[in-house]
Computed example of a mutant assay.
Amino acid sequence: MEDICLVKDFPNSVKERKVKDILTLAKIIYKNWDEEYKDYLVKEFNLNTKKKLLKLSTGNQTIVGLVIGLASRSRLTMFDEPTLGLDAAMRYKFYNLLLEDYEKNPRTIIVSTHLIDEVANLFEEVIIINDERITLKDEVNALKERSYFLSGREDLINSIIKDKKVIHREEFGSTKIVGIYGNLTEKETKYIKDNNIEISNIPLQKLFIYLTENIMKGEYSNGRN
Rank of each mutant, 00 (worst) to 15 (best):
L41D: 04
N96P: 00
D34Y: 06
L204F: 07
K18A: 09
K190E: 15
K162I: 15
W33V: 06
L211A: 15
E81I: 03
L150V: 01
L122R: 12
T62Q: 00
Y95A: 04
L66Q: 01
K162H: 15
D101Y: 08
K50W: 11
E198T: 06
N60A: 07
Y92M: 01
G179W: 01
Q205E: 09
N201L: 04
R169Y: 11
E186G: 11
L184C: 06
I167H: 05
D138P: 05
N60R: 05
K8H: 01
K93N: 09
E213W: 15
V42T: 01
E154A: 02
E186I: 13
Y92S: 10
I110F: 08
S147T: 08
N130M: 12
T175L: 03
P11A: 02
N46K: 14
Y95W: 08
K50Y: 13
E198A: 11
T49P: 07
L23S: 01
L47P: 09
T77E: 01
F94P: 08
I4P: 04
H168R: 15
S112N: 04
K8V: 00
E100A: 11
I197S: 02
K187N: 08
D87C: 01
G182W: 07
E2I: 07
I28Q: 15
W33Q: 07
T62M: 00
K104I: 15
V42G: 05
V119L: 15
F45A: 01
N32H: 14
V126N: 03
I28L: 13
N141L: 00
F10I: 02
N201T: 02
L76Q: 05
T185L: 10
L207C: 02
I29F: 09
R224S: 13
E125I: 04
T175G: 14
N48F: 05
G182Q: 09
F79R: 07
G152V: 12
M78Y: 04
L143F: 03
L53E: 06
N225Y: 14
I192M: 12
N130E: 04
L70F: 06
